[in-house]
Design a binder for these strands. Structure first.
Lengths: 351, 351
DNA sequence: ACCAAGTATCGAAACGTTTCAATCTTTCGG
DNA sequence: CCGAAAGATTGAAACGTTTCGATACTTGGT
């Protein structure tokens, strides 16, 4: 009820100049309103002659459809809502780009918002989306799904949840982070590493937890015995730097020979700290990140990382959603992408 | 007319479940529609008793306002449009964040789009915004202002142009990039550099041109004589790397002692190439970037850069726009921010 | 020449609000 | 105790579309 006390706008300051309506077009083209509406929405019902007359009138008057009226009468909106979890994360931006790609090509609109990991803000935006009567939602959700969101899912609102494996109602697009984690560590093990550190906060977010699970699984399945040290850290460059410094300070005997970071940002920090403290990467220490954000390849030592198809996740989510809304039953309601490993220069055999 | 042939949605697939309207609330609360509307929009006109009755009914029915109907009848929208020039540029994302900050706190909504430097796409979105009858627009525009945009400006539509100094109609928020360029080079000159390279494409974008202008001005005003080499380059990491390699290959006599990059991205590439070819920064070569994007401080050699107040630009633009729309005359219709220099470790005295 | 069957066109209702003028109720000064 | 001002409440119109049933105009088969 956030808008209750909104001050009404000064009517003399009308936002847009008064525009011609369908009525004016009809008058100028000497046809009825209905015919104008039809040439716009069902041209096949209108004779070619009228069609050009109407088109001419539209051009002459600079007529622009009033979306709110159309929406109200037809009860049908062509706008989607997209809620980002965190607009600073390059991966999520890429998801947004993907969504935009497919919506733009299919002639839909997207209302983008950003919960900034704040449940209150998420709630506000969900309410807003409801007021707008959007056709459907794409959400990168908070870690425990909020009640509001859960309610929407079970009420049948078309919602696609992104980056969180779901299975029940609604739709979802996720990536298999447990095999992602396994992939990264298997790579290290194959290179000969037998002592590996995992840097990242296990409880910070669902996806991170999965990565660690994958790591453990890969180690359990390895033929050799591998030691794993888990070093909790927030998902930031600074936290990575702190952990990297700590690792560099270890005695060579205690020190792992490879580090896996839960997130590229962490890997950045680790890398900096290691280099600054005289360790060479990958000679003295291998390092693998996760997400393959654009800068990973531009680091002083280009980073080996696990790539998640963010863009593709966005396009897929938008496709599933628009299909569901227009009544085409999507072939799969839950899709899980497989990540893959991008080997660059930050990993090598231990010395 | 892009939507002319849109297929109507399957009505049995109604996006959202049928919702209670104001009429239902009125019936349940035993009051008229008008009273419900008033408790929502002008609570001071309604007696406390009715107010609680209506509130209860709203809660019980889960009533959610239908924004399109409100918009249609009141002729008044509380939604702004934001058009980004390039959603990959961290600076512009930051502008968006700023916009969102103030709109969220003032209870407005933002429709975000991204022209991706494609004039066609810009045009499409402008049309869309017009159809939505948005209250106003914030635009980071293409280099030569598009005709459509120019038309909106002169037709009195509330528009704030960002990152482009304007002076005529409409409003604008920009930053003084010529003093920004001067700032960076003055810093180098003060450190003792007398041979400086400017890397960046002079004609790529208005703001870049201004930076170079500032550079030239600072050199002209310097007491010592300074040699300037302009090395054109696209605004990407790769282009920077190429130029960096080239610079590293120069004979020490011909080589500049400092490089100024038109954009941080370029500086990243230059830095990598220099380091890889054995030059030390800042010992052998000073380097200054522009924009101070978040990663600048996280490079292996933290980058000296010119900071532009992106976030602030966003908040300011949104404030100006909402003020203008609600009839409050903004104190200044064109604001220009001053950039400032952030000195980190990539610059030092020449040896 | 007439009728059936399209094919084009139209008038008017409806979508869910806000708003405005009109009515009803209370309060209070004299 | 009256009348008027102030305060609450309401019915109905309006916003700009889309849609639906009805009407008018063609056409072609007989």
């Amino acid at each position: 009820m956030s808008r209750i006390t909104a001050t009404p706008i000064n009517p003399d300051n009308a936002p847009f100049p008064k525009r011609a309506g369908i009525k004016d077009v009809a008058r100028l083209a000497q046809v009825s309103q209905a015919t104008v509406s039809n040439t716009l929405n069902h041209p096949e019902l209108v004779s070619p002659a009228r069609r050009v007359a109407v088109a001419a009138a539209i051009r002459q008057l600079g007529y622009v459809r009033h979306e709110a009226a159309r929406h109200l009468r037809s009860g049908y909106s062509r706008t989607l809502g997209l809620m980002l979890l965190d607009a600073w994360n390059p991966g999520f931006i890429e998801v947004a780009r993907g969504v935009e790609d497919t919506t733009a090509s299919r002639d839909w609109t997207v209302l983008i918002s950003n919960s900034a990991r704040d449940p209150e803000r998420e709630k506000t935006y969900l309410r807003l989306f409801a007021e707008e009567r959007l056709a459907g939602l794409i959400v990168i959700p908070q870690d425990p799904l909020s009640d509001d969101l859960r309610r929407m899912l079970s009420s049948g609102t078309p919602v696609v949840v992104v980056d969180r494996a779901e299975s029940g109602e609604g739709m979802s697009v996720a990536v298999d982070d447990v095999t992602g984690g396994a992939l990264a560590v298997k790579h290290l093990i194959d290179l000969g590493h037998r002592h590996i550190a995992f840097v990242g906060d296990e409880s910070a977010a669902g996806p991170v937890h999965n990565r660690l699970t994958g790591v453990r699984k890969a180690i359990a399945e390895a033929s050799a015995s591998v030691r794993l040290d888990v070093l909790p850290a927030a998902l930031t460059v600074e936290a990575g730097r702190a952990r990297g410094k700590q690792i560099a300070a270890m005695s060579p005997a205690d020190r792992p020979t490879a580090v896996m970071a839960a997130v590229d940002l962490l890997a950045f920090g680790v890398l900096q700290a290691l280099l600054r403290h005289g360790l060479r990467v990958p000679d003295d220490m291998s390092l693998v990140g996760y997400d393959d954000i654009p800068f990973a390849r531009h680091l002083s030592v280009p980073l080996t990382s696990v790539r998640r198809p963010h863009r593709k996740m966005g396009t897929t989510a938008a496709e599933m959603l628009t299909n569901a809304i227009t009544g085409r039953v999507p072939e799969r309601r839950h899709v899980v992408f497989q990540p893959d490993l991008v080997v660059r220069e930050s990993t090598g055999a231990p010395t």
